[in-house]
């Protein structure tokens, strides 16, 4: 059952991610992005990271994609262009795909070569999940990860100020100079 769920969520995630890249209409791309995020949340549940799965759906599928949809509708690009790939980009992406596949296959074929001890028969069935209660996150955030936590909070403040400054509508350039 778990195996089937893994393949199902992986297929859903890959398919909708491919549709994000391929769909010509940005609104459709955003909708497929929601499906991809929910698929990843499903994979998080399989990995027993329930808190992160909920966070994923709330933040990504909820806030981020809604923000994307708002901006898409705000901008209202008129005509949709065909997806045309440049020569350099095509060559670069094919090379990147080959390199990534080589990496993934080398991990799959000989895991011990890449990370020692990874090839042990550790599967979802044979290992115990670590404690994934929100309390665990709180404990780690306020002990070992206190400084990154503070920095993340400060980053959010900076981002908020930046967004307000960026999206403020100035009447003309002189007003900008007067404010600076």
């Amino acid at each position: 059952m778990v195996d089937f769920l893994f393949y199902f969520f992986t297929a859903v995630t890959w398919g909708s991610a491919a549709m994000v890249v391929l769909s010509r209409n940005p609104v459709n791309a955003a909708m497929f992005l929601i499906v991809a995020m929910v698929g990843i949340a499903g994979l998080f549940v399989l990995l027993s990271a329930f808190f992160l799965a909920v966070l994923q759906v709330l933040v990504y599928a909820g806030a981020v994609v809604v923000l994307f949809l708002f901006v898409i509708m705000l901008l209202d690009e008129g005509e949709k262009r065909r997806i045309r790939a440049g020569k350099v980009s095509s060559v670069a992406s094919v090379m990147a795909l080959v390199l990534l596949l080589v990496g993934a296959l080398s991990v799959a074929v000989s895991p011990d070569l890449v990370v020692p001890g990874m090839g042990e028969a550790r599967t979802l069935g044979t290992t115990e999940p670590v404690g994934d209660a929100p309390r665990e996150y709180g404990y780690h955030l306020f002990t070992a990860y206190m400084l990154p936590f503070q920095v993340a909070g400060f980053l959010l403040l900076v981002a908020m100020i930046g967004v307000i400054l960026l999206s403020k509508r100035y009447r003309d350039e002189s007003e900008v100079r007067a404010q600076v």
Binding site: T10, V21, A92, A96
Partner: peptide, 27 residues
């Protein structure tokens, strides 16, 4: 219950590749 870390890593790698294609190819 036979899914190991390699399966998740392959899933993650291909997802990353798809996103990378989008960044390179879309305008």
């Amino acid at each position: 219950m036979n899914i190991g870390i390699v399966d998740f890593l392959v899933a993650s790698a291909l997802l990353f590749a798809i996103g990378f294609f989008g960044v390179l190819l879309r305008r």
